Amino acid sequence: MDKEDHPAFSVFSQNLVPACKCNSKRLKSLVGPSPGERILHPYFDSVLSDRIVAAYFSDLGAIPRVETRIVLDPADPCFAAAGFHHDSVIMRTGIHGYLMSRWTKFMRQPWLIVPDLRFNPVDRAQLVAIIADERVRNDESRDSKNNWDSVFLSGLLDDHVVDWLYAQLTKPGRLPNGPLL
């Protein structure tokens, strides 16, 4: 909570949490105009243990279009809060620039982002398994399914991206560990 508007909470132990720069990027508004819209709190909102954000890549190639989207089930009671949090906090950070830089590095050296891609997958299903396993490693090592690397990897698991990646990885003449473009 903002200590200017809520000074009593500035020393409340559950308000004193290590926060990324996301917290300083948000607006002062903690709630939105529609029912359920609000900022999510790391101690009080268990929905943060679920995957709520993923990248979305379109116009695939050297410079794709990158967006983020809510992947939480729209029937989830926290869906409105997740959307408000996305728009009020996440979208005000440098996440899109970060996702673009990861994409660029992934195009040049896929194994730096997904180490098991040192060797080309034998089929599409293996590619999905490799990316999904790397996402689990990121989720667990960072104690969050919504860290920016997991957001990136979630976007790679979209069917249209998997199809495009598999075609790039298995292109005739491409060497293992070689660039994708």
Rank of each mutant, 00 (worst) to 15 (best):
G61I: 06
G178P: 01
W103L: 09
V71F: 02
A82T: 11
D5C: 01
L16W: 00
C22I: 01
M107Y: 02
S46I: 10
F106Q: 03
A81V: 07
S144M: 04
P33K: 13
T170Q: 14
H6D: 08
D133N: 15
R65C: 09
N138W: 07
R65S: 11
D2V: 00
L180W: 05
T104S: 12
A55P: 04
S29R: 14
P35S: 12
A80D: 11
D59I: 00
Y56G: 10
V122L: 06
F44Y: 14
I39Y: 04
Q14F: 07
A82S: 12
D59L: 05
W148D: 09
V162Y: 05
K21E: 15
I70G: 03
G83M: 14
D76S: 14
D163K: 02
Y43P: 05
P33A: 12
M91D: 02
N23E: 08
F119H: 03
S34L: 15
E134A: 13
L117T: 09
R174D: 08
V11D: 15
F106Y: 13
M91P: 02
V114F: 06
G155Y: 09
S24P: 01
R65Q: 15
V47C: 13
V11H: 15
M107F: 08
P42F: 03
A125K: 10
P110E: 05
R38N: 02
M1N: 11
V66W: 12
A8K: 04
L181K: 04
V17T: 15
N120M: 06
Y166Q: 06
P33N: 06
P74M: 13
T68L: 08
F152L: 07
G36V: 08
V161P: 09
S46Y: 00
G36I: 03
Q126V: 05
G94E: 12
I130S: 09
D50W: 10
Y56E: 15
F79H: 15
L153A: 08
A129H: 13
N23V: 03
M107C: 08
V17K: 09
N147S: 11
N147F: 04
R124I: 05
E4S: 10
Q14W: 09
D5Y: 08
K3C: 11
M91F: 03
D73Y: 06
Q109P: 01
Y166L: 07
I131S: 06
T68C: 13
E37V: 03
S24H: 11
K21F: 07
P74L: 09
W111G: 06
